[in-house]
Design a protein around this nucleic acid. Structure first.
Lengths: 341, 341
DNA sequence: CGTTAGCACTCAGTGTCGTCGAGTGCTAAT
DNA sequence: ATTAGCACTCGACGACACTGAGTGCTAACG
């Protein structure tokens, strides 16, 4: 519904604004080589584009600024996804050749790369643990009445929790219980763990172990694997260098948001596969209404597992970020695949 | 070396300034009930106090502001440590009655309490792990060539790391190795672990297990327990509400500092036992030259173990913070004692 | 002699005013 | 259809005066 020329002009305006962060006027567009029209013509088109809702004017005698709708059109139709910068690419690759001993390390690494290459804030959601299953379970007594429960998943992830053990429960009882639990529960998906423990294991355990109910009660806690620690952030302070955040209050609401892990998780929940761009007011959350969030899902073994994302001002370098996310999400899939193999 | 009246006036000025964050003039001091002198008299004293270095003047026709030296005198001689607010106290106590399954949780909790009660930023250093010893060691294979090494300490702390196991090493070999390691190394302090593993265990292990050197090589990694994750922060954005941080650049340098865990650890290193106040330029680090850092060590089983601290503007409520730290450091000692018992 | 009232002085903050310039919208000429 | 030209708008900026909080000094007071 836009003429070719209007698209050219819109593209030029957004390009300029991304670079300068200042309202762009008709003359500066006209002076660029790529649009060969006079300022007056461009002014007319700009007026039309504003009427159509693609541009906005901060005040009468200022240049134009892209609206959310403008950015939306830009990312949907105009932006040309170039190749990822060579030096960026080598940085990514060299990062991932480093030796990493924990899955969390890989994910945190990915976040760090993203934020350092873009100068925006990166948010990475670790792989969901739904699919994971129990590999090993253990109770290590550390005093008369306390023990550490350790759960190892098939992906090598370790969860641990201190529990209090019922008094007058003997060491041998505990050992026996752990053995039964291991034989019965290995391979069971984590989400089913609690249910299965009570139904199937409960009876069997009751035969051999006194006080079995109380033990199971405490273990309930241990098997509560909330995955609140799946969110990894990096470059949170990068936002402060953006001119749109020279106001401390805005900074605070944003940084406070970063501290609320559950809210972040909700923002990322139900992400469709692939790359997604949410611009300004398209975001559900107030605090980032003048930000854009670009996310990409990554999959492990062909199953969608987690999400990596970049949060920046609406005036962000969409082409670059989309390219980076594309590359990195694929690299992560490969890298994480090793853990799941 | 200060007259009684000078001390009164200095005290009044600092009190006022802590409340208002604005240069305080002679008239406003005179109007307070507690100093019964005219503005003129107070002006004279203020001039003297400035000459002595306790006060500073932003510009000629402004009120006075305490200098670092002024604050120092204030905390050393003037501040009267009142009892901790009752409602604060109940908050602390009720917090700590909550059930917590991990030591990290306790520490993070303490940090959260501090920052929420003070509206400053809290920095808590978890207990040193020097004294900790090995309670249990385990290798859980998760694929043909990888395993998770798990170390449990006597305090119930769990460390885990993914290691790659040498090819053509049999399951039974691994099991045997783990058994030997467990019998030989339990009770050994963590810092000695690597050394002891090579000297004593190495020979014994060599007798039973093939490829023992290569296994020990990989385990070296696993036993590298850097304690970089001992620092807990809370309320980092509280600083943004302080008028001295309405400049985004200052905010950024501060927040960047918060991100550098090693630097933070260095700031806390070698803390003498007890409560310590470091004011403004007394701090080694540039980024917090207009902040004060108040720290308290806490001990477990009578041994100094970690540090809790509050970072706020130099214009902070010293009395309240010192009181809180005092209470909380003792509570933490008690609470953590349970883990070490 | 310590204290205080009085006074001249300083200076950041604030509001007003005119200028400047980047930018627009409209009209008429090409 | 395009563009040159022109009047107009409006924020940004500097100059300016005014205000008021605060000071330092001096002289008077008890």
């Amino acid at each position: 519904m836009l003429t070719e020329r209007q698209r050219m002009i819109l593209n030029a305006i957004i390009d300029d604004y991304i670079r300068s962060a200042e309202p762009v006027g008709s003359r500066s567009i006209s002076k660029r080589g790529d649009v060969g029209f006079s300022a007056a013509t461009i002014r007319n088109e700009m007026a039309d584009l504003e009427e159509l809702g693609f541009l906005e004017q901060p005040h009468t005698s200022a240049g134009r600024v892209p609206s959310t709708k403008g950015y939306r059109y830009y990312v949907d139709h105009l932006v040309k996804l170039g190749e990822v910068n060579d030096s960026d690419l080598t940085k990514i690759r060299s990062f991932f050749t480093e030796k990493m001993t924990q899955m969390e390390e890989v994910i945190q690494h990915a976040a760090t790369i993203l934020s350092s290459l873009t100068n925006y804030t990166s948010i990475v959601l670790g792989p969901e643990s739904y699919a994971n299953s129990l590999k090993h379970f253990q109770l290590v007594p550390i005093s008369d009445d306390a023990a550490v429960a350790i759960i190892v998943t098939n992906t090598g992830h370790v969860e641990n929790r201190t529990i209090s053990i019922p008094p007058d429960m003997s060491m041998s009882d505990i050992e026996r219980a752990v053995n039964i639990l291991n034989t019965k529960l290995i391979g069971v998906p984590l989400i089913r763990l609690k249910a299965k423990m009570h139904t199937e294991v409960g009876q069997e355990l009751g035969r051999y172990v006194d006080q079995c109910e109380r033990l199971l009660g405490v273990l309930d806690d241990a098997f509560n694997t909330e995955d609140e620690n799946r969110v990894f952030l990096s470059g949170t302070t990068n936002m402060l260098t953006q001119p749109e955040f020279k106001d401390v209050d805005k900074v605070k609401t944003l940084l406070d948001l970063f501290g609320e892990t559950p809210t972040l998780m909700r923002m990322f929940a139900g992400q469709p596969v692939g790359i997604q761009v949410r611009i300004g007011s398209e975001n559900s959350h107030e605090a980032i209404s003048n930000c854009s969030l670009i996310t990409a899902t990554y999959s492990v073994d062909g199953v969608s597992a987690g999400t990596i994302g970049i949060l920046g001002p609406t005036r962000m370098d969409y082409a670059k970020v989309i390219g980076l996310l594309d590359v990195l999400s694929k690299d992560m899939a490969v890298l994480l695949g090793r853990w799941y193999k």
